[in-house]
Each structure stands twice: as C-alpha cells, then as structure tokens.
Simulated assay, not measured.
Amino acid sequence: MAPPALPSPTTDDTPPVRQRRTRRKEARPGELLEAALSLFVEKGFAATRVEEVAARAGVSKGTLFLYFPSKEELFKAVVRETIAGRFAEWNEEFERFEGDSVELVRYCMNSWWERIGQTQASGITKLVMSEAGMFPEIAAFYQQEVIRPGHDLIRRILQRGIDRGEFRALHLDYAVYSLIAPMIFLLMWKHSMSACTPSSAPIDPLSFIDTQVDLLLRGMLVRPTPSTRP
C-alpha cells in the first residue's frame, strides 16, 4: 500500500501570508504619498523618479502604479492630500467665524502657516513656480486646485470686511495678492533664501506674519471722514 499522502506544506501557510499582504496593501497609498512629497520637495518634479518613490515607501514600482498610473497622477494626489484638501475645512471655518474681519485676516494667515507653511508641503509651491514652464499640465492643475480656491477664499474674507463696514472699498483682484505676497516670500525664504540670510538676522515666520498683517490692515481700515473746518 502506498503511504497516506502528507498535507501540502504550503496549505497552512497561505492564509497568514495573504493577510499580511492585505494589511500592507491597505497602508501603501499613504506611505507612497509621504515618500513622494519628500522626494518632490527635495529633488523637484522632473528629477524625481517613480522608482525612488517606490523604494522609499518600501514597495515595488509595480505596486506604485496600482494606485497611481503615472508620476503626474502621483503628484496630483500629493497636492490634493496636503494642500487642496484643506480648502473644505477653511471654508467651513470661514462660515463659522464670529469675530471681526481684522481678526479673520490675522487668523487666516497664521492658520495657513501652521497647516501648510511650516510643513513639508510648503515646498510644493516652489516646485510649481520652478517647473511650471516645463510641465504646463502640472501648472494648470495647481492653478485649478490651489490658486483659484485660495483666491476665492481670500476674496470672500475681504468682501466680508467691506460688507460689514470694517474695510474700505478695495480692488479685490489686487488686494488678494497683497495677502498672498508675504506668504510666497516666506515659502521662498524657507526653501531658498534662508541660505543667503545672515545668521545675525533670522526671520521668525509668526512675527513676520504679524507685522505684515499690521501693515496691511492699516491700509484697509475705514478712513475717518475729515472734519470740516469753519
């Protein structure tokens, strides 16, 4: 008689391996986005290779392409996750804000620095500014997902102040840039200009923002009507 067949040595091992792979697979998108953000900020869009992103995340290039079919789509996902996705919460906070518009402007600029400026995502703006000419699709995407919603939100804040009689009438298209410009300066200082700044003259971002808000608001507050001399 032939001896009884022994169980396959791989039968009992298969389920645990499959379970481990499932858990790992679920964790991968976030790890890939984190790795991609780091590399995009360090090297730029053109110089970053998907192989590097996959290796830093600890997965294969094939696994990366399961989630993101191209480097462009990976970049878009990074922007949505770290910047564009913030606008929903900012708009909700705008609707709930009960203070005056002076404090809303101050809150807006400080909140932007805390949630974007002091994080690694702040390097994305420099990347887009540097490489927009080479990658018009990326520039168009950034304009649609970040610049336009940002402009719209700032316009609503300024219009709120005008409607409430707290700000004088402004050319809103240009007034928006007055609030954006200090933020752009901080980003460029953080990622490029700080290396050229003397160590004896460091820039504290929160103090810089506070000073800019003070300068801007003194130009936006309603001007008192001059008294008529007899």
Rank of each mutant, 00 (worst) to 15 (best):
A55K: 11
S38L: 10
S38T: 12
A57Q: 07
A57E: 04
D12G: 13
R56Y: 10
G30H: 03
R24N: 06
T48I: 06
A5N: 12
F45S: 05
R49D: 11
V41I: 07
A46W: 09
R56I: 11
A2P: 13
R23S: 04
V50C: 09
L32N: 05
P15I: 09
K43L: 08
R24C: 06
T22S: 12
E34F: 09
R21A: 11
A54I: 05
P4H: 03
P4G: 07
K43V: 03
L33W: 00
D13S: 14
R18S: 09
R28Y: 13
A2T: 14
P4N: 05
L32M: 04
V50K: 02
L6E: 15
T14Y: 14
L33N: 03
T14P: 07
A57D: 01
A27Q: 09
F45W: 01
L6I: 10
R28E: 15
E42L: 02
R49K: 12
T22D: 14
R24M: 04
E42V: 01
R24T: 09
P15C: 04
R20M: 14
G30I: 04
A46H: 09
D12S: 12
L33V: 00
E34D: 11
R24Q: 06
R24A: 10
V59P: 08
P7I: 08
L32K: 04
R56D: 09
R20N: 12
V53E: 04
G58E: 03
E34S: 12
R23Q: 05
V17L: 08
P15W: 01
V41H: 04
E52A: 06
V59E: 05
A47Q: 09
R21C: 08
R28A: 15
V17Y: 07
A5P: 09
P29K: 00
A46M: 03
A55P: 05
V53I: 02
L37P: 01
L37F: 01
P29D: 06
V53Q: 01
K25H: 15
L6Q: 13
D13E: 15
A46N: 07
S8R: 12
R23M: 05
T14S: 14
L39K: 04
L6Y: 10
E52R: 03
T11I: 12
A46E: 08
A55N: 08
G30F: 02
D12H: 15
P29L: 00
E51C: 12
E52F: 02
L39G: 00
D12K: 15
L32D: 05
A36C: 02
A55R: 12
A57G: 00
E52G: 00
E34C: 11
L39S: 00
V17C: 03
A27E: 06
L32I: 00
F45A: 06
T10Q: 14
P4K: 01
A55G: 10
E31T: 10
P16S: 06
F40V: 01
E31Y: 07
S38H: 10
P7H: 04
G58D: 00
T14V: 11
D12I: 10
T11N: 14
A55L: 09
D13G: 14
P9V: 01
R18Y: 13
A27C: 07
E52Y: 07
P16H: 01
V53S: 06
A46I: 02
G30A: 02
S8N: 13
